[in-house]
Design a protein around this nucleic acid. Structure first.
Lengths: 222, 222
DNA sequence: GAACTGGATATTGGATCCAATCTGTTGCTA
DNA sequence: TAGCAACAGATTGGATCCAATATCCAGTTC
């Protein structure tokens, strides 16, 4: 019997996972109301676990809630996006500052492996795979700082723009950029060069921000 | 009829407010399990809104959740505390950097008024009043940056240590410190002096960290 | 005596039902 | 026609009931 299949211990978790997927794929699009009954029926559960999952997503900013009016998928304005990237700049720099000096060879290799996975997913045009392994690449680095609260905050910030991120990976030119930038960052990590790592991460981030900005101004009706 | 009392539109909100109060006053002490039934009975509601409120608190890190085992009030280790203060340092500096140049006279006066309220509460020994108006003092400044996500993140960080904060205000010497430091900060704000404001906020924060650290190592059994 | 098995109890998880609120529409009135 | 009241349907909020799981303890086996 294969042991790598774990059914979620609770329905709330299963609902949460599925709602996250619907949000990042855009099947639940920004601005749309989330009908509890519809979600419950879709997933074959009652509304109770749906409501608990929605409360989690509300805390993460993915949906907005108004009493007796329900949940709506959050829309990200350009100002929000700029703020998210500014906060990421401050916090990712801290994570790198702390993590890089204490990276082991095994850490670096794991990060490099994630970079190769991004690349592999890119070659097959697997957008979901790219976003997942890209996230893996960056958070292996951030988590190495050993600051769980920092990691959690960074995850929230990344989550907020996840809906729009896949548009960046859709462009072939961007994919080539990503590959080169990841490779350069791995080199800097291997050399334990903090300044260079921070600079490369910043450049990497700045490249994606314009693509995501464009996605927002075109995608949103307002 | 006085209009300043608004009953919460939903029970979840009422439960959330009350649970927050129980957490900051320590009536729900770190490490203790939160029995849904007990909370529900205490507040005269069913377990459903209690569970939704607990999911919010879980997202904020106030309680920890394990499936089928329920919620436990989070404990803050000294490492957690150090991390929280480091993140505050980074983010509060940013808030001040953005807010101070664009503070209006009215903003400064509102902040100064909050400082007087802290002082007034201090003279009557009203610890809850002190923590509340102290928070008001600082977040009027942070919010003036016009960065809602930054404000939200800072609130989470402040919340995390709120349980332990009142011990700081309990000392008469600390109260005098607070008064002087708030006054100095208001002067710097009035002068629109960013560097000085950041420095004073840092000193202010550093003074409280040792008191809170002491509270943790004495209060916790581990 | 240590480890395991089975069941009793406490607690959480989820489904269903009903109440409260919101939204859109119809019809009335000025 | 503009505005308002009343009603109907849809949707959310909450209470209750039952199921699933965990914990604890007694009894059994080796």
């Amino acid at each position: 019997m294969t042991a790598d299949f774990v059914r979620p211990p609770t329905a709330q978790e299963a609902v949460l996972t599925e709602l996250r997927r619907l949000l990042v794929t855009g099947e639940l699009a920004p601005g749309f109301p989330v009908r509890q009954e519809a979600v419950a029926e879709l997933l074959g559960v009652s509304r109770v676990p749906v409501r608990e999952a929605l409360k989690v997503l509300e805390g993460e900013g993915h949906v907005k809630y108004a009493a007796h009016r329900g949940y709506v998928v959050s829309e990200l304005s350009v100002e929000d996006l700029v703020e998210v990237y500014r906060l990421r700049e401050l916090l990712e720099a801290e994570a790198i500052r702390v993590a890089v000096p204490q990276l082991t060879d095994a850490d670096v290799e794991a990060i490099a492996a994630a970079a190769r996975q991004v690349d592999a997913a890119g070659r097959t045009g697997d957008l979901a795979g790219m976003t997942a392994s890209n996230r893996d690449f960056h958070f292996q680095l951030f988590d190495a700082a050993g600051m769980p609260r920092l990691s959690r905050t960074l995850r929230q910030l990344w989550d907020a723009t996840d809906v729009y991120r896949s548009v960046y990976f859709a462009g072939a030119g961007n994919r080539r950029h990503v590959k080169n930038e990841h490779a350069a960052l791995v080199d800097a990590l291997r050399a334990h060069d903090v300044r260079q790592s921070i600079a490369l991460q910043k450049a990497h981030r700045d490249h994606s921000v314009s693509a995501v900005t464009a996605a927002i101004v075109h995608g949103s009706s307002g």
